[in-house]
């Protein structure tokens, strides 16, 4: 690929997809619940990166609609993370003495 094609928009979009891929890989192959929760967050950040980078074009102001979507997404992501962590805590509280599944 030509280096001149390597605009910041493409670079940041590609890094967003790379973050999504890393998160997906972690979600599948790492067994610990904390890592799975982290992985889902990393995937989310990747998607947000794609949205934010596609909002930015040369010569015009950034598109606010993807920004608003990302803000919504961040809040929803923290809600999901907190729910997952709370369930983990309750599962551990209820656990028999072996502490693991």
């Amino acid at each position: 690929m030509m280096l001149s094609q390597l605009t910041p928009e493409i670079m940041y979009s590609a890094s967003g997809i790379a973050l999504f891929g890393i998160g997906l890989l972690g979600l599948i192959i790492v067994p610990h619940i904390f890592r799975k929760i982290l992985a889902i967050n990393v995937m989310g950040v990747g998607i947000f990166m794609l949205l934010v980078s596609s909002a930015k074009r040369a010569n015009i102001d950034a598109d606010p609609v993807p920004h608003a979507m990302v803000l919504t997404g961040i809040v929803v992501a923290v809600a999901g993370t907190a729910l997952a962590l709370f369930l983990v805590k309750k599962i551990n509280d209820l656990a028999p003495s072996e502490k693991s599944q």
Binding site: S13, F20, I40, M43, G44, G46, I47, L50, L51, S54, V65, P66, M69, G73
Partner: peptide, 13 residues
């Protein structure tokens, strides 16, 4: 939901 959201990002883009 995340897979769906990625698709939304692609479509909006």
């Amino acid at each position: 939901s995340l897979c769906y959201l990625l698709a939304v990002a692609l479509l909006y883009r």
